[in-house]
Design a protein around this nucleic acid. Structure first.
Lengths: 195, 195, 195, 195
DNA sequence: AATGAATGAGCGTTCATTCAT
DNA sequence: CATGAATGAACGCTCATTCAT
């Protein structure tokens, strides 16, 4: 097992999902993006579905790393489901400001990430393992968001994640929607905070 | 054209989309749900894509009818893009209360409708006509929401629709999410209103 | 049985073959050209193949009528496989001149006829009855040509008909071929005659 | 790319076209004749149409090779659109004798080749790429015939090729036609030459 | 480990034909 | 006579997957 090749395939799947969407991302297309023989995909991952599960895990890991790239300690705390001390010191308002700007940056800079997320959701309808993994990852992310914002209302994290997803989904369909205003309003209303 | 058969096919497509999802909803499966020969689908709709467009239109019509089943005048006004006078008389608070409870009722009662909506969004990635029609319908619905709530902020209707979609999407994936709480929070935050 | 409707269908088939070619000339398309319900085609002709056979007969009759529209007696004689007396009086050279100019006129004016002829030949590969009827008609036409030109060499009529067909076939494929020159050369060589 | 399998598929297409005609030569039938899985046809050729184009090229190459199998130099000269010196030395009469006997041999021996040629022409009505390639090949062959017979009359090569095609077409329909006599007459008239 | 030939189930679609009305 | 709804076999093509090399 060459971990390098395995990673190439995962990266190929990512690129293909971004550029082609999941319907055009056949095994051969993915292998093309990965610069790898298509037979290797099954050799390394067993099936297309399992490759997608691996990609989801890879993406999930990256999200957190990107959000807290400057605070590796926070990352460690959060993945252990502990509230980072640095966050605990922030006031609610300061926290909201910090996170919402960071998320905006994140989603602006990592549009591709969002695209893939949508593709995962689409795929989950026909791939049980993808569905299961995605569910698991989203639960984890909700928990982490709860920790970050110190908000015990389960509706809060659910709404936050769902709204971000929904905005992106509608944006994909119709790039003319008021995406910035919608995001700003979400931030404002959810964090009682205005830029 | 036997309108009865045509309707049977649309209903078959609806059922199939709900129970099987769009990927398993092949022409033959849809025809099976409709209790009709598969060739008839093309006889009546020309292509799978055109059937889906017809279904979207049928659904869009039903949404408004279901939301305002007790106020046919409002329906007429809204489809003419006029603000119904009955609404104009309500105060903001009263209006928010009215609509948000109605939407909650709607989405609780018409879960299937929501499921199909998600399938449409998934299909739109590979069916240009579906994409176009869906975009058109969503723009119309946003406009109507703006009229109803008398809110000229484009972010408002965008966020409202997107959040509802997002919540449903996540709910599909994981029926254990705090859907009620998320919806309640959305209502509270977006309409500054609490039950 | 309404002979009028039957004729409308035959005419529809002719038009469709000319404008659409035999592959696009489905029963429904033909019925469209005929301005008639597609079910009637089977009602009157039993099958598509039998319709085509009827069309071949109709065309074959018309060819002779068009060639000898000014000499109805000749027509009668020829269909009885007698050599018309008017022809017997002509000298070989005069005859060749007469017929070759007439054929040139014919094929220039009745390009559509030629097109259909090609379509028949194409169809004959997959429709045994069409093949049989066409064979029969062509034998008759060869016999008639033999009578006209008083030429007992079976190769003569075979070559004449085959060359005309071949030229048209190549012309269909590539309208830039030297069709006039080829026809002129055929006339010159076959009738030892130059314009 | 297994050239062996690719060739098997081309040969299968050839056989199928000869024995079944182009309408019955479905991908699966062709694969059957080739002794190969039907999916491989698309694996190697992309589409049925592209397979047919490949077959045309293969056939076109073989024609020249068969006609000049004993003069490889001529082949080289002709494909470079030069007149072979060996031909230049022949007198007109000798040349006509040489070529017409050779063609007779060719078409007697390679009846199947002729059958396929007719199928190509039929297919060209519905396959644009086939049409284009066939047009191209025929133009090339006309040019080569012009070189061989040193005849600059465009009608000559056009008539020659068209007549041969037409004779074969009629022969397909009705094997009882006077094919030998027609060919003999064509040779005699076109080359002013008698056996 | 890596390649790509080979497989086969399944897709949307077409269309001649049948038949109830 | 006429209509058009309904049927079903067949088509070209796609693609995840298997497997010999």
């Amino acid at each position: 097992m060459s971990e390098k090749t395995k990673q190439k395939i995962i990266d190929g799947a990512r690129k293909s999902l971004i550029k082609e969407g999941h319907r055009l991302s056949t095994i051969k297309v993915i292998a093309g993006y990965a610069g790898v023989n298509h037979g290797l995909v099954h050799h390394y991952f067993g099936s297309k579905e399992d490759l997608m599960v691996a990609l989801i895990e890879s993406q999930a890991q990256q999200v957190l790393e990107l959000l807290f790239s400057d605070n590796p300690d926070w990352l460690e705390d959060l993945s252990q489901k502990r509230r980072p001390k640095g966050l605990a010191k922030m006031k609610q308002r300061e926290l909201a400001q910090f996170m919402s700007s960071r998320m905006d940056q994140f989603f602006s800079a990592y549009d591709d990430f969002a695209k893939i997320h949508i593709e995962f959701l689409a795929m989950s309808a026909e791939m049980p393992k993808v569905s299961k993994k995605l569910k698991e990852i989203l639960r984890k992310h909700r928990k982490i968001l709860g920790l970050i914002f110190n908000n015990s209302n389960p509706g809060f994290t659910t709404l936050l994640l769902a709204s971000l997803t929904g905005i992106l989904l509608h944006y994909r369909l119709d790039p003319k929607i008021a995406i910035k205003e919608a995001r700003a309003l979400l931030r404002e209303k959810l964090f009682d905070y205005q830029l």
